[in-house]
Computed example of a mutant assay.
Amino acid sequence: MVEKNLTLIEEFILLGFSELPNIQEFLFVIFLIIYISILLGNGLIIVITNMEPALQIPMYYFLGNFSFAGICYTSVTLLRMLMNLWRQKRNISLLSCAVQLCFFLILAATESFLLAVMAYDHYVAICKPLSYPLIMNHKMCVQMVIGSWVTGIPVLIGQTYQVFSVPFCGSNKLNHVFCDMPTLMKLACGDTSGDEFFIYIDCFLFALIPFLLILFSYIRILSPILKLLSTIGRSKAFSICSSHLIVVCLFYSSDFIAYLQSTSSY
């Protein structure tokens, strides 16, 4: 057996925008404005949906939870990025990296499930309006929201543990702005085929299945909308669904660009 001297990695360096040293301050300001906008926009939605009596309906209850998940989701990555740009230090310990990855995965799964729940809510509201108060009662809404938040936790904690149970050796430079699984897998020693298999399983459970549920809901919604004789009713139904569809397209298209374009060097 050939022995190799391998230096085990104790921390990573997030390369981020290190190839652009002259505009670090500019990038900090840009991302700070983006982050403040996210906090103000989503925070305002949460406050309004909780304080306005007219908005105490399931659609806005789900929207408030989605906004809160959005704040948490972006805070996991943007806060660390802002800190790195401000300090000009990009090192992150293995533990901090694992915590960031775990929360990132859990919140991504939560947002995915909440989008599916919102699509189902639209389906019931448009296709079964008379049964809507009975189906989407308060107890059901709370259960669906809790399910969206906790369903992925045990699986994704286990996934994070599995990723970091593999030793990392060689280079400790992560070509990313935060700790993410595909980037970490490139630095892992030994056979990672098992980890990659479970990554695909996670993508199926927490991305593909919710997306298919959303797609199925809107296929079922489309026929009743087209049958509406009233132009006002049709435009109202489209307005209810359009904003949700835009968010769905942005959410899943960004994931597609980030994870399926693995051949790109950028």
Rank of each mutant, 00 (worst) to 15 (best):
M1D: 14
V2Q: 15
I9M: 10
S18L: 08
P21I: 00
I23S: 07
E25F: 12
L27C: 14
V29S: 12
Y35E: 13
L39F: 01
I45T: 05
I46R: 10
E52L: 14
I57N: 01
G64Q: 01
I71T: 04
T74S: 12
T77W: 14
L78W: 12
L78T: 13
L79I: 15
L85Q: 08
L85D: 08
W86E: 11
I92C: 09
S93L: 06
V99S: 01
Q100H: 02
Q100V: 00
L101I: 07
C102H: 03
L105Y: 01
L105M: 14
L105E: 00
L114P: 02
L115E: 01
A116W: 01
V117N: 15
H122K: 13
H122L: 12
H122M: 08
Y123W: 15
A125K: 06
K128F: 08
P129F: 03
S131V: 09
S131D: 15
Y132N: 11
H138Y: 12
C141E: 05
V145T: 05
S148C: 07
W149P: 04
V150R: 07
P154A: 02
V155R: 11
V155K: 10
L156R: 03
Y161T: 09
F164I: 05
S165R: 14
S171C: 05
F178V: 07
K186Q: 09
K186C: 15
A188G: 08
A188F: 09
D191G: 15
D191Y: 15
G194I: 12
D195C: 08
I199A: 05
Y200G: 13
L205K: 05
F206C: 02
P210W: 00
F211Q: 08
L212P: 04
F216C: 15
S217D: 03
Y218N: 14
I221Q: 02
S223P: 11
P224I: 12
L229T: 09
T231K: 12
R234W: 00
S242I: 09
I246F: 09
F251I: 08
Y252M: 05
D255K: 15
S262C: 03
